[in-house]
Design a protein around this nucleic acid. Structure first.
Length: 105
RNA sequence: CCGGUACAACGAGCGAUAGCUUGAUUUUCAAGAGGAAAGUCCGGGCUGCCGUAAGACAGGGCUCCAUCUAACGGAUGGCCGGCGCAAGCCGAGGGACAGUGCAACAGAGAGCAGACCGCCGCGCAAGCGGUAAGGGUGAAAUGGUGGGGUAAGAGCCUACCAGUUCCGCCAGCAAUGGCGGAAGCUAUGUAAACCCAGCCUGGCAGCAAGAAACAGAUGGUAAGCGUCUUACAAUGCUUUUGUUUCGCUGGAGGCAUCCGGUAACGGAUGCAGUAGAUAAAUUAUCGCAUUAACAGAACCCGGCUUACCGUUGUACCUUUCUU
RNA sequence: CGGGAUGUAGCGCAGUAUGGUUAGCGCACCAAGCUGGGGGCUUGGGGGUCGCUGGUUCGAGUCCAGUCAUCCCGA
């Protein structure tokens, strides 16, 4: 689990990124195991919306985790993360992971 | 019945699959966000710092009366004022003969007033003097009406009315109200302007407070902690990073019944009973289903304020109709 | 958790200290003139719930209380 600001900054600066309508994904293969951080800024909404966005992202990431390569991941929420249907977001995340080269064969 | 007023309650459930946190008797079972958890506007508890203790001042706060409360700037009941036909609602509601300031524009004059027009007297006239009844200005012009009085007028005098202050009696714990009498007292408003009076109050920081353990790193001899007085004590640690543990949830707590009280609230008895996370659990997806607002605990309580879907209940008021 | 600032015309700002006549300034906008036309210049003009809701006062952008939004700072 990523905690500190400098860890986030490292991934933002040096990692690869991919976008989808509901999410943004950052990936940096710098660790021998999978670590992840979730970000929901004030732009997403109030505390309820931010919490919901983080919970949905955590659920999405968990379902995809066995297929992922080692490294640091960051999922960033958008305002649409709260309302977008689950299946659409799942498809989007899989596509993004493929694009940054994190999906294991 | 229509419309309205006040108060209270619920604010989510069940099932399937996958998963999280805590606890236990650990292949399993149990528990797991709010009425506002919010805003952070007040009051406390708790912890540390100001060397310790006591006192004074400064500073800060409050303001009809009584009661409640651990305390409060909160609550309850009452008084007064305003709004409403009413049920009810709203009010920072002490003091303007302790002092200072301000009152634009208009207007003749605006703060121990003032003579523009008018009125009266003197004067040939110019003008001088008297006058606050009338006109006009203004948010505000020294109380209103009648009579007397006068050169013309004026609380100058008087009757009644309105207000203020004082005295007495009655009701009330009190604020205050009622009745009677006296004083021509009627020279304003503003203290959410400075201020005065009375009352209350150590200050500052906040659980990222603070304590301990382990592993490191880097310096420092002095600090940002209102002022003063008195007494006593004292020279040794301190700064900082990471992880873990404690602080961490049983509390001025909740519910029910009875008693006291108009009520807030207090007392007695009984009953039930682990939210405690740390990048932060309490959920994700689907279904019942056509359907939810405002919104997410982060040390804990008591209030205040604000946001809000859909309903339900109780009490009361107005108009009309019926008995 | 704590501290602070701002909100006034489409945009950027004054005015709030000490309440007072019709709330100003620059850019932008509109019209007219100068030019054959544009630009530029000159003259004139329009545009404001002073974030919102109450209160104090004769009178509030200004004082007071509450509230909303935005931004900044510290641990």
């Amino acid at each position: 689990m990523l905690k500190h600001n400098r860890e986030f900054q490292l991934v933002y600066r040096k990692g690869k990124s991919a976008h989808s309508p509901a999410l943004v994904l950052f990936y940096l293969p710098n660790t021998p195991f999978v670590t992840v951080g979730f970000t929901a800024s004030k732009k997403v909404g109030n505390a309820v919306k931010r919490n919901r966005a983080k919970r949905r992202m955590r659920s999405l990431f968990h379902s995809l985790e066995p297929q992922l390569a080692a490294g640091s991941y960051i999922l960033v929420a958008k305002a649409t993360t709260v309302d977008t249907p689950y299946a659409v977001m799942e498809k989007g995340l899989r596509k993004m992971a493929e694009r940054v080269g994190a999906l294991q064969a």
